[in-house]
């Protein structure tokens, strides 16, 4: 098996130490850091995302895979030259005001990062004003909003309105998700995309990134 495939395998099993060891070995073998990143780590993360989407693996599996990815990136970081790691896009991500659920949002973050998208995570219970501020400050291409409650999903609409008022709506793609959110709801509130899982979210975000 190719060493990058081995890295991807170990990452999917969440084996942090193996991933580190294999990366060091790959570097010794003269494989380019960029290749290790893309064909090993990011490839592995993308595969685990697909498996998660198909219910073959679950939240804990994704978390340990992401942990292995981050551990691997730590080693590669000093070796990567600027051009290698330029993120394909920047996203702002949060759970909306009134809502404290963050397990799903965090998985979305990991998957986006797995696609090479830089994520500014604003956390949970984030107001529309803070989001507008962050959009001004970080100029992201994507804004991702998570809501898990019927009492907070409407806040996604409030955020979209605030972006409009601030004249920023057409500068970003707004993606929405979370348990009670549906495509119908997303269309109604004028979001650019809804997906029911984190892996598909990262694919759609990647598409948006390549469009811009």
């Amino acid at each position: 098996m190719k060493i990058t495939d081995q890295i991807s395998e170990s990452l999917q099993q969440g084996k942090l130490e193996d991933v580190k060891e294999l990366i060091n070995k790959a570097l010794e073998d003269g494989i380019l850091p960029k290749v290790i990143l893309n064909e090993g780590l990011l490839e592995g993360m993308s595969t685990i995302g697909q498996k998660f989407k198909n219910n073959e693996v679950f939240v804990p599996d994704v978390l340990i895979a992401a942990r292995a990815m981050n551990g691997g990136i730590e080693i590669l970081k000093p070796k990567l030259v600027d051009g290698d790691v330029k993120p394909i896009a920047r996203a702002i991500l949060c759970t909306v005001k009134g809502d404290m659920h963050d397990i799903g949002k965090n998985l979305v973050k990991m998957m986006l990062e797995g696609k090479g998208i830089e994520v500014i995570d604003l956390g949970v219970n984030v107001s529309e004003d803070s989001i507008v501020e962050a959009v001004k400050k970080y100029k992201p291409q994507i804004v991702g909003l998570s809501a898990l409650l019927t009492t907070t999903m409407h806040q996604q609409k409030v955020v979209i309105n605030s972006l409009e008022e601030a004249g920023l709506r057409d500068k970003v793609k707004v993606m929405v998700g979370g348990a009670p959110v549906t495509q119908t709801f997303a269309s109604k509130i004028g979001a650019d995309a809804y997906t029911s899982d984190a892996a598909t979210c990262s694919e759609v975000a990647e598409k948006f990134a390549l469009e811009v």
Partner: peptide
């Protein structure tokens, strides 16, 4: 449970 799957592997 989550909205569409078990929260963890049933075996776990």
């Amino acid at each position: 449970g989550t909205q569409n799957a078990p929260l963890m592997r049933p075996s776990l």
